[in-house]
Design a protein around this nucleic acid. Structure first.
Length: 509
RNA sequence: GGACCCGUGGUGUAGUCUGGCCUAACACGCCUCCCUGUCAAGGAGGAGAUCGCCGGUCCGAAUCCGGUCGGGUCCGCCA
C-alpha cells in the first residue's frame, strides 16, 4: 500500500483536498456526553457482569444487536464481547439502529419474574438507559449476521469477513480456536517443550508440493520459497539439542484446495522430539488431544481409548482407504473417533509423474517424505526388496479426516544416503540436502515427530464442513484473499527493483 | 489440467426443463407511521432487482444456444 509508485500517483492537489475534507467533517471526539472509556470517566462494565450490578449505575459499550420499538418504550439488545444485555428506555433508544456502536449509562434493574428471558445469560436483569451516546453509526449490513451464515454466498461473506465474523458461530469458532492453541501451548510447556519460530523466507526443496516463491532484491535472479512445513528446521533443532520442540506453524503450499484443505496457507502444530520411539510420539499426542477434548469440548466423547492402531495395509483392506471413519453413529455430532494408521510402506512405485524425484530411472518414490526412518525389522529389505520396507510413519485420523502425520526420522546419514539413492536422487538434488547430511555428522539424536493440522482438527471438532469456517481470513478456491483482494498487480518500479522483467504492453492476468 | 453444480432487489429463495399469463413472486432486512413490556415483538403502508457479463436464435429470452467472469464440490494434485 505504501509503495513509492502508488504514493507518487496521488497528486498533491488531491492530498490537500482530502485533508481539507477530513478537517471539515471530523466529529468531536470524545463524543459529547459520553464519559466512558476515558481516564476521567466511568469504568466500562461488560454485559455479562451486569447480573452482579443490580441497583448500580453502570456504563456499557457495544453494538446494537436488535431493536424492539414499542413507541413509548424501546428495547435494545446490546452486544459486547461477553454477551447480550437488554436495554430499556424511551425516545433516546428508538434513535439507535442495528449494529450502531453505542455507549449507554444506566441503572441495572432486576426484571419482574414474568419478564425474565431464560435464553440469555443476563435474562434476569436489564439496563434502564439514562444516557445514550452513539459512538458510530452503522449502515445496513450487506447480509444478516444473526443466522449461522451457511446460507449466504461465501464470496460475499469473505468480502465482508469482518462483518461475517460478528455472527456468533464464527466468533465462537475463533474463540475456541484460540483456546485450543492456548491449551496446547500450556500443555506442552508443562512438559518441557520449547516453542521456536522457524523462517518463513526459506529455501525451495525439490520435493512435495508446489512452492510459493519470493523474488530476492539483494540477489538478482534468486528466490526464497515459503515453507511447506518446518520439516528440515525442526530436525536441525534436534541436532541443536533442543530435544522437545513445537511451533504453531504456518505452512504454505500452492496446490488446489478442497473443503478440508485451504488454498495457500494452513496452520500445523509442528512437533519434534529427541530420544523417542514411535510409541512415545503416539502416546504424547494421544494424551495431549485427549486432555484438550476433555477440557475444552466436554460435551464430546471419544469412541475408543486408547485409540485403535491400524496398519496401513489393514486399513486399505478393511475400509478401502487410509483414513477410516470409525464413528459408531456418524449422525452423532459429539462422537469423536480417533485412530492411528501405522506401518506405511516406505516407498511407492515411482511413476512418470514423480518427475521431482530421481533422474527418471528410479523405481521408488517416498510415500511420506524422504526423512522417514525404515522399520528396524525391515533394514535388510532396504537392499533386497525396498518396496516391502515399512516406514516408521504414523497418521492421526479423526472421524475420517487425516488430521496429522509424522514419523521417526532417519538419523544416520548412511541410511539417508541409501534412501536418496533408492529414490534416484541426482548429484544436484542430493546437494540440495547437503546441509542435512552435514548436520547429521555432528552427533544427532534419534528423533521423530508429528504435525497435526490445526484448521482441519478444529473443523472436525466444530462439526464444520469446510476448514474456512475455522480460519479468520481464508482464501477462496482461486486464491483470492478475504477483504484485501490479493493477489494484486505490482507496479513496474517495484518489479524492476526485484529484477523481474516487465513485459511492455501486456497486463498480467 | 479435468468433471459437475450454482449465479434473479441488501440477504435467502421461487420462476428456467415445457420462451409470451414476468409490468418478475415470496420470506427476511431496509424506510415511514402506529403501539408502555418485548426478547424471531406486533400492526399499517412504502422503496428496492431488466434476472453475473458479452453475443446469438426468435415476432418475443430470467427461460434456448455459444462464449466469458465469479463462486463451490470432486478427480488429478496435496512428500
Amino acid at each position: 500500500m505504501y509503495s513509492r509508485g502508488k504514493t507518487q500517483s496521488l497528486s498533491s492537489t488531491r492530498v490537500k483536498d482530502t485533508i481539507k475534507l477530513i478537517k471539515a467533517e471530523i466529529p468531536p471526539y470524545p463524543p459529547a456526553g459520553g464519559a466512558g472509556g476515558y481516564p476521567q470517566g466511568m469504568k466500562r462494565t461488560l454485559a455479562k457482569e451486569t447480573i452482579n450490578e443490580i441497583g448500580n449505575t453502570v456504563l456499557l459499550q457495544g453494538w446494537v444487536n436488535a431493536k424492539r420499538d414499542h413507541g413509548k418504550v424501546t428495547f435494545i439488545d446490546l452486544r459486547d464481547r461477553s454477551g447480550i444485555i437488554q436495554l430499556v428506555g424511551g425516545e433516546a433508544l428508538s434513535k439507535l439502529g442495528s449494529e450502531d456502536v453505542v455507549e449507554i449509562e444506566g441503572v441495572v434493574k432486576e426484571r419482574p419474574q414474568s419478564m425474565v428471558n431464560p435464553n440469555i445469560e443476563t435474562g434476569k436483569v436489564e439496563l434502564e438507559a439514562k444516557q445514550v451516546t452513539i459512538l458510530n453509526k452503522a449502515k445496513e449490513l450487506p447480509f444478516p449476521i444473526d443466522t449461522d451464515g451457511h446460507e449466504i454466498d461465501e464470496s460475499i461473506r469473505l468480502k465482508y469477513r469482518y462483518l461475517d465474523l460478528r455472527r456468533s458461530r464464527m466468533n465462537g469458532n475463533l474463540r475456541l480456536r484460540a483456546k485450543s492453541v492456548a491449551f496446547i501451548r500450556n500443555w506442552l510447556f508443562e512438559r518441557d517443550f520449547v516453542e521456536i519460530e522457524t523462517p518463513i523466507l526459506t529455501k525451495t526443496t525439490p520435493e512435495g508440493a508446489r512452492d510459493f516463491i519470493v523474488p530476492s532484491r539483494l540477489q538478482p535472479g534468486k528466490f526464497y520459497a515459503l515453507p511447506q512445513s518446518p520439516q528440515q528446521y525442526k530436525q536441525l533443532l534436534m541436532v541443536a539439542g533442543m530435544e522437545r520442540y513445537f511451533q504453531i506453524a504456518r505452512c504454505f503450499r500452492d496446490e488446489d484446495p478442497r473443503a478440508d484443505r485451504a488454498y495457500g496457507e494452513f496452520t500445523q502444530l509442528d512437533m519434534e522430539m529427541s530420544f523417542v520411539t514411535q510409541e512415545d510420539i503416539l502416546e504424547i499426542t494421544e494424551n495431549l488431544f485427549s486432555d484438550l477434548v476433555k477440557s475444552l469440548f466436554p460435551e464430546k466423547t471419544i469412541t475408543q481409548s486408547p485409540w485403535p492402531r491400524i496398519s496401513h495395509a489393514d486399513s486399505k483392506k478393511n475400509f478401502g482407504n487410509d483414513k477410516p471413519d470409525l464413528r459408531k453413529d456418524k449422525g452423532d455430532a459429539n462422537e469423536l473417533a480417533f485412530a492411528w494408521i501405522i506401518d506405511f510402506p516406505l516407498f511407492a512405485e515411482q511413476t512418470s509423474e514423480d518427475y521431482f524425484f530421481g533422474s527418471g530411472s528410479a523405481k521408488f518414490a517416498p510415500s511420506h517424505h524422504m526423512f522417514t526412518a525404515p522399520h528396524p525389522e525391515d533394514l535388510q529389505l532396504l537392499h533386497s526388496d525396498p518396496i516391502k520396507v515399512r516406514g516408521l510413519q504414523h497418521d492421526l485420523v479423526l472421524n475420517g479426516f487425516e488430521v496429522g502425520g509424522g514419523s521417526i526420522r532417519i538419523h544416520q546419514w548412511e541410511v539417508q544416503e541409501k534412501v536418496f539413492e533408492l529414490i534416484g536422487f541426482t548429484k544436484e538434488q542430493k546437494k540440495q540436502f547437503e546441509h542435512m547430511l552435514t548436520a547429521f555428522t555432528y552427533g544427532v539424536p534419534p528423533h521423530g515427530g508429528i504435525a497435526p493440522g490445526i484448521d482441519r482438527f478444529l473443523m472436525a471438532m466444530l462439526g464444520e464442513t469446510s476448514v474456512r469456517e475455522t480460519i479468520a481470513f481464508p482464501t477462496s478456491s482461486s486464491g483470492q484473499t478475504s477483504v484485501m483482494d490479493a493477489p494484486s498487480q505490482v507496479g513496474p518500479d517495484e518489479l524492476r527493483e526485484l529484477h523481474i522483467n516487465v513485459v511492455q504492453g501486456k497486463s498480467a492476468k
